[in-house]
Design a protein around this nucleic acid. Structure first.
Lengths: 201, 201
DNA sequence: TACTATGGATAATC
DNA sequence: GATTATCCATAGTA
């Protein structure tokens, strides 16, 4: 992170070229690197606007996964694509399209493309609207009536602050539970480590 | 790569936080980051001795994959693990849509149908979210109405919870500062231990 | 594509 | 889990 001279730590010492770590460090190393890998994947999603699915089996053989937006659709789509040309550059699939049109009686490629285009436009519009609403929620609360705890913290007395603190404690607890519940559902039981009350999210 | 001072280049200049790059750089950035991601995955495999499968669809909607030892067995194994049903869940609402262009010309009906289905699901999710946000905004307008974050925590989505959490984090910081200030004034040095930001509350 | 300086990931340690 | 020094990935440029 930032350069701060304080006391002499040792920091990251030497790079084990590669192989295996000792059993003791294996767990923590796996956790760190898996976390880093998922973060990188997330960044790639955001920066390049692509879809990624990652499946990892831990040393203990437990499944972990990352998917944007979701693992399964991406994996399914990948499994449906012709295999031999996974990483190669150009593979004309026009032939496949022609063949598909032959046995797809209820819809043509053209029609599907039309629907797809319209749907995607609609999606974009909805997303844009959602973002605008987000902004309103985030920043626009000052325009309407404010709750008393929205007042500047400097204007509160100790009593109000204590009440606020107690309320926040309760809400925080509920938030953590809810987030864990959602994440548990999302990850399809692929993640065993739950979020806790640290500040990583 | 080793450090070598030679002639003044510019190297990596500051980090655009995240979003999208311009079309020009998108391709090269995607290539670099995908390469880096796969390398990280490879390292994780070697160092920790685990199995990983990654599937990425490029901005041009081309499939890329990394698998150790192979993608398909890992994915199959993952898909075979029992998992709760996936329904309307909130992931980070982001991008998905820009794959239209490359898809129009070369893809099978089946693939188009899959993309269409995904897109429609996303549309529904976005619409639902928009409605929820509408309700929240509306509820926040009335003077005697409840603020949206006063709603039962069970009715919130992950996105709303994230916003709430960020807000709480800020408030918490202010509360701590204010409490410390008040205690310092009121108690006249009767209290020596200050509140801190650990997880005691 | 290759290169470099910078930002970010992380191994060792507390 | 938190911290720090070090190593690695990579944005920008040629």
């Amino acid at each position: 992170m930032v350069m701060m001279k304080k006391k002499p730590g040792q920091g990251r010492q030497k790079i084990p070229i590669a192989k295996i770590a000792k059993r003791s460090n294996l767990q923590v190393t796996f956790c760190k690197r898996r976390s880093g890998l998922f973060k990188k994947a997330s960044e790639l999603c955001t920066v390049c606007g692509v879809e990624i699915a990652i499946v990892v089996f831990s040393p203990a053989n437990k499944p972990f996964s990352f998917g944007h937006p979701h693992v399964e659709p991406i994996v399914d789509r990948f499994l449906c694509t012709p295999k031999p040309s996974i990483d190669s550059d150009f593979t004309s699939q026009q032939l496949l399209v022609d063949q598909a049109q032959g046995y797809m009686s209820d819809s043509s490629v053209h029609e599907l493309n039309m629907v797809l285009t319209q749907t995607q436009k609609h999606l974009e519009a909805e997303k844009k609207r959602g973002q605008e609403l987000d902004e309103m929620s985030k920043a626009g609360q000052g325009s309407s009536k404010r709750c008393w705890w929205e007042n500047p913290i400097d204007e509160m007395g100790l009593h109000e602050i204590q009440i606020l603190k107690a309320a926040m404690k309760e809400v925080k607890k509920n938030v953590i539970e809810q987030v864990n519940k959602i994440l548990k559902i999302q990850s399809c039981a692929a993640v065993n480590s739950q979020y806790h009350s640290s500040d990583e999210w």
